[in-house]
Design a protein around this nucleic acid. Structure first.
Ligand SMILES: [Zn+2]
Ligand SMILES: [Zn+2]
Ligand SMILES: [Zn+2]
Ligand SMILES: [Zn+2]
Lengths: 146, 146
DNA sequence: TATCAAGTGAGACTGGGTATCGTCAACAGT
DNA sequence: ACTGTTGACGATACCCAGTCTCACTTGATA
């Protein structure tokens, strides 16, 4: 879907080794769209006969997350999933039907955070916002099917 | 901290049995402040020599969550924690130092959700917002300690 | 107080995630 | 290019949250 080299570039810039397993994981992620779990990547790898150790996949995801090349999202059902994304502050809109995600800036948020800080006396440090809904494609499909 | 009878009342109203283990779990929750995990309750119970099965604690949490007497929050580190709370739509401000939580209405959210829907074409169904920061008490303690 | 479905708990099981440790290979320095 | 250092790998054992099973207990109701 996207270009695996973007993650690889991020790795390189940050001074990490460009190992074969990391390239493979970056490739698997690039070929996905929407969110995915570590287990999904393990399956993908096995299907394609790319042998990457399970532990390595977890380690790669952890690293990519630290480098802001992917981000973890907590699905409503409690699953820990990941999405590839841009290294700037943003939020995700997640299709609860096909898992596709879109990034949004949700510019209204800083104001909300400020108000909440004022109302509660908390010094707000960070916030997490995830929006769930039906993406345009799925809406179209659904209405076509009746 | 709070009154265990509030959860018990909710249980009763919903037509569930008021069993001893459920009262115990409700009590453990009431005695906590801030968020807690299922494991925390298991430990609490053991310390106080209240014997409640582990499975029962999980089941009680699940039930209380369905009844909106507690709510699950996903901490930034990936842990699944719970907080006792009111059965109306709201969000949580969580102290990253002492785990205390406060509920807020965050009235700005519907507008944000609407904007995001308009910008992305998604039909927004639900959203999750969690704010993390330092509570007034901890701020005071921190500045006192220098 | 008798009835019986709802609820419980010991323990087995699953699955996500981590720790260990011997081996390997990316990269810097020559 | 050759080599040494060391970061990374991967097989495997392990840990822990959460679920399932099933024989047993208990709360509500008459
Ligand atoms: Zn993102
Ligand atoms: Zn969709
Ligand atoms: Zn709540
Ligand atoms: Zn605090």
């Amino acid at each position: 879907m996207t270009d695996p080299s973007t993650i690889v570039t991020v790795l390189d810039r940050a001074g990490f080794r460009l190992t074969e397993p990391r390239r493979v994981v970056a490739g698997l992620i690039a070929d996905r769209n929407g969110h995915f779990t570590a287990a999904d990547l393990v399956d993908d790898a096995r299907e394609r006969r790319l042998d990457v150790g399970r532990a390595t996949i977890f380690r790669a995801l952890e690293l990519f997350t630290e480098l802001n090349a992917v981000e973890r999202v907590d699905l409503p059902n409690g699953e820990h999933a990941y999405v590839e994304c841009e290294p700037v502050h943003h939020h995700h809109v997640i299709c609860s039907q096909c898992a596709r995600t879109t990034e949004v800036e949700a510019c209204g948020m800083p104001a909300v955070a400020r108000d909440v800080g004022k109302a509660t006396g908390f010094k707000i440090q960070s916030h997490r916002l995830e929006l769930f809904g039906i993406c345009p494609d799925c809406q179209a499909t659904n209405s076509r099917r009746g």
